[in-house]
Design a protein around this nucleic acid. Structure first.
Length: 356
DNA sequence: TATCCACTGGAAATGAAGGCCA
DNA sequence: TGGCCTTCATTTCCAGTGGATA
């Protein structure tokens, strides 16, 4: 039943972007100076999870490269590459200039290598740039006249709040492309296009696609995940098409699969913390640290545990209720996130290998 | 109202790991 | 081979916040 599984992957770039023509045009216009050997202004893509920010960036740059093949594109996800070193290394790696670079290579040397790679323009796409811990990387990139940046984040205010004055003043100018959540009909149309390419004809009905789109609450990533899960489930059962029952069971499957993959990527100490929180339902920090220390032979300090907990909140695995004294931690309700995924939620669908 | 206490998170220090080089 | 340099995870220290209590 599945003709091309790649089409149902999150990172697949479709041949045509549906319901985002204005946004694609705005980004294309921003990057147009590259066609005339000029440097474009920084471009920003803002919007909540699953609205197609990354897809639009990849699609637009693929189109640009068809017109100007000399332009090189470096895609760096700041969930994984959150230090200055890792960003610079990521860019060098993407353009094939990371030879002879190792973990003890000085950052200034990496910057020098990037500065020397000025034979052709480079567009650096920093996805989830709000996760960047060392914004000096942005300053580095801005200093290089042959490097242009496309920055992807959830919210403009939070992104700029994390910049130091030097970076903020340089990036204040630039084109903002804002994306809102898809409507149910829009998302159903996107899923229909994907199904046409990925599945055999009549493998899924329009009503079922609408049901999936409705359950995804405007989040294309979740919608595609549900469609993928339903297709695999139907194929395993030897069905020639996806029925209503398969869709119903696939809806919780999609988010659970993302969560399971994320939990698998936790290091041992993080997983102990997660297990304690899951077992208790809701727990205060003091009790959490005490139970953690009881369970492990060589416990980390409380400060390190606080860093772990902050990361796990970012991953959307747990939530911190309240601030400072009186705070409690609890596991994020999976069912709630399927249907009520709120505006501005973090792009926490990280792969297991993105975790520390 | 003052004080205590639990908690958070920033900043600096520390140590492990790994590569370079004389 | 050992000293040096770098990055990065972890630890240490501490200021700030806000609820609880006398």
């Amino acid at each position: 039943m599945i003709v091309d599984d790649r089409v149902l992957r999150e990172d697949f770039v479709p041949s045509e972007v549906v319901h985002r023509h204005d946004e694609v045009n705005l980004l294309s216009e921003t990057l147009e100076p590259l066609l005339y050997d000029r440097r474009p202004e920084p471009a920003f893509l803002f919007g909540p999870t699953g609205v197609g920010k990354t897809c639009i960036a990849r699609y637009t740059l693929a189109q640009l490269r068809e017109q100007e093949p000399d332009v090189r594109v470096a895609y760096v996800n700041c969930w994984q590459e959150y230090t200055r070193f890792r960003v610079l290394y990521g860019v060098l790696s993407e353009i094939g200039r990371a030879i002879d670079v190792h973990r003890s290579t000085p950052k200034d040397e990496l910057f020098g290598k990037l500065a020397d790679a000025d034979d052709n323009p480079i567009v650096v796409v920093l996805d989830e740039v709000d996760q960047l811990e060392e914004t000096a990387a942005l300053y580095d990139l801005h200093r290089l006249p042959h490097v242009s940046v496309v920055l992807i984040a959830n919210r403009e205010e939070e992104l700029f709040a994390g910049f130091d004055d030097r970076v903020r003043s340089r990036l204040r100018a630039g084109t903002r492309v804002r994306l809102d959540r898809y409507g149910t009909d829009e998302l159903a149309a996107i899923l229909s296009n994907r199904a046409d390419e990925a599945l055999e004809p009549d493998a899924v009905t329009a009503d079922q696609l609408r049901r999936i789109a409705d359950a995804a609450s405007g989040d294309a990533r979740v919608g595609i995940g549900i469609l993928r899960s339903a297709a695999h489930r139907a194929e395993r059962r030897g069905q020639g098409s996806i029925d209503a029952e398969t869709v119903r069971t696939a809806i919780p499957d999609a988010r659970t699969a993302i969560r399971r993959k994320t939990i698998q990527g936790l290091i041992e100490d993080q997983r102990v913390l997660y297990d304690v929180i899951a077992a208790e339902g809701e727990i205060e920090p003091g009790d959490l640290y005490a139970e953690y220390e009881r369970r492990v032979d060589d416990p980390k300090t409380e400060r390190t545990l606080r860093n772990y907990l902050t990361k796990m909140v970012h991953y959307d695995l747990i939530e911190a209720v309240g601030k400072r004294r009186g705070r409690t931690y609890r596991v994020v309700d999976e069912d709630a996130t399927i249907d009520t995924d709120s505006e501005g939620g973090s792009d926490s669908g990280v792969d297991a290998d993105e975790l520390p």
